[in-house]
Design a binder for these strands. Structure first.
Length: 467
RNA sequence: GGCGAGGUAGCAAAGUGGUAAUGCACUGGUCUGCAAAACCGGUAUGCGCGGGUUCAAUUCCCGCCCUCGCCUCCA
């Protein structure tokens, strides 16, 4: 059974099957590397990662392309502030991005093209668009796409001409001199003529020195790595308009293809019930959360715990909740592994068939997680044979792999260093217990708890754990 | 104003034309000297508000309220 996924263009759930019958080829709009990505950015990348994992788990290989946007207003501006060349500056942030992706257990894309490395491809596409009458060079050397030349413009975002113009007329009141060089307010830049503030960041073109517009890189790199037609295109909801609308216009007018055959858009992450913003100080990065003691695995769990098409509210409590949920899964896995130590590679969800089918229905991750816990709750590990335990565990790991969940060690198994004084108090309490001096034992237990340590008695003796 | 998404227990979040998964938190019990862990159980007479359709609606229809996003370069 193939994955059924909501398609933004048709507003319907459609089966995701490869055009070529073999490999699912898809493109994701990647990060602009001018600073660390925040967890809102990562919600989108994590959702795309789950999509890829589910497709691969269902037996279809993928070709995953995700770009790095390393030339735009912000990268140019901030590289200059940092006193670095654009390439050095973006290389640093790209490295940080990769490290964060690895921490979040994101599968690396098969191809990760950089915009700066594909400027000739973009120039070539502009040339085609000018030749076919879909684009024109303005007096200052900028090149614009003529929106009126593409009848399907607005189809993806479902925006009418009227709305497009209304929006554009508002923008025109801004003091951007570029606006006056365009034939129509709705036209957008393919090539931006060199400006003094660009510094050394300009490239040659038949229309003069300058740099490519933002939308064009994706179209050019998609053509290079996926061709005129490909299976699926994905990004955050905010990219529907204008970014994806413009990509469609550029690509469809410069090739004979239909561009993306399926559109997946991920809803935004909210924090404490509101939108994220720098001014509110709630724009968290993985590093911010690590400082508060939360792992990337816990962040990932929170990010997948809501359906990708619904806004998700992120709170610190949700991270605590994720920690406990992961522990619950880890403990269940541990119980199964004691019955069946070797982990068989499973290509089927076994006991978790319901969870798997839920996942195939528009990537319902929260529903699938619920089904996994439900199945585990019904399970009586003690009554299982080794074969049964192996099958259940294989199924569990099939699901965990599809969700990209990496189980943490069970907390009580984690070796912690116990300070000598704490250890001594614990020993005293043990001695009191052996002497059946309950008041003394209880007093010592309380003393240790006040110091942040918990005594856990076992058959053989006792262990001390941090609270 | 237009378009889109969403409003379900203390928090988070699924789902369905027939009477509310799941995780966290809380809580009762078993166990334990007491705890912890584990296991068994409880916690929304109700799914934004008001109408309507229906034998039956949280689920369909209409109206309204609220939140979030987009309306030219924000995942």
């Amino acid at each position: 059974m193939p994955l059924k996924l909501h398609d933004t263009l048709t507003r319907s759930d459609r089966a995701v099957t490869p055009l070529d019958g073999k490999t699912l080829r898809f493109y994701c709009c990647g990060p602009t590397v001018y600073g660390p990505a925040h967890i809102g950015n990562f919600r989108t990348f994590v959702a795309q990662d789950v999509m890829r994992r589910v497709v691969e788990s269902s037996g279809t290989p993928t070709l995953h392309v995700r770009n790095i946007t390393d030339v735009d207003d912000k990268t140019i501006r901030d590289s200059q502030k940092a006193g670095q060349t654009l390439v050095d500056f973006t290389r640093g942030w790209t490295g940080k991005f990769h490290a964060d992706c690895a921490a979040l257990n994101l599968l690396p894309p098969h191809v990760e093209p950089s915009a700066v490395a594909h400027i000739p491809h973009q120039v070539a596409m502009i040339g085609k668009l000018i030749t076919s009458g879909h684009a024109y060079a303005a007096a200052d050397g900028s090149v614009y796409f003529r929106v009126s030349s593409f009848k399907d413009y607005g189809k993806l975002s479902h925006l009418e001409d009227r709305e497009l113009r209304l929006g554009a007329s508002d923008a025109a009141s801004a003091t951007d001199s570029d606006e006056y060089t365009k034939d129509s307010l709705t036209d957008f830049a393919l090539w931006k003529a060199r400006k003094p503030e660009d510094g050394a960041n300009h490239w040659p073109s038949p229309w003069g020195e300058g740099r490519p517009g933002w939308h064009l890189e994706c179209s050019a790199m998609i053509l290079e790595y996926l061709g005129e037609d490909f299976d699926l295109h994905s990004g955050g909801v905010d990219l529907i308009f204008p970014h994806h609308e413009n990509e469609i216009a550029q690509s469809c007018c410069s090739t004979h293809g239909k561009f993306a055959h399926h559109w997946m858009h991920v809803a935004h992450l909210m924090v404490d019930g509101g939108k994220m913003s720098k001014s509110l100080g709630n724009l968290y990065t993985l590093e911010d959360l690590a400082k508060r003691g939360y792992s990337a695995a816990e962040v990932r769990y929170v990010l997948i715990s809501g359906h990708y098409r619904a806004p998700l509210n992120f709170t610190m409590h949700s991270l605590d909740s994720a920690r406990q949920a992961l522990q619950k899964l880890a403990k269940a896995d541990k119980a199964l592994s004691s019955l069946s130590p070797s982990l068989p590679i499973s290509k089927s969800p076994a006991l978790f068939q319901d969870a798997w089918e839920t996942l195939l229905h528009d990537l319902n991750v929260p529903g699938a997680l619920g089904a996994i816990f439900g199945a585990l709750n019904k399970l009586k590990p003690a009554a299982l044979s080794a074969e049964e335990a192996a099958s259940v565990r294989g199924g569990l790991h099939f699901m965990l792999h599809a969700l990209g969940i990496h189980l943490p060690p069970v907390m009580e198994d984690t070796a912690v260093e116990v300070p000598a004084d704490i250890q001594a108090l614990a020993q005293q309490r043990w001695d009191a217990k052996q002497a059946k001096d309950w008041p003394a034992a209880d007093a010592l237990r309380k003393q240790l708890e006040a110091a942040g340590w918990l005594i856990k008695d076992t058959r053989e003796g006792f262990t001390v754990l941090p609270l």
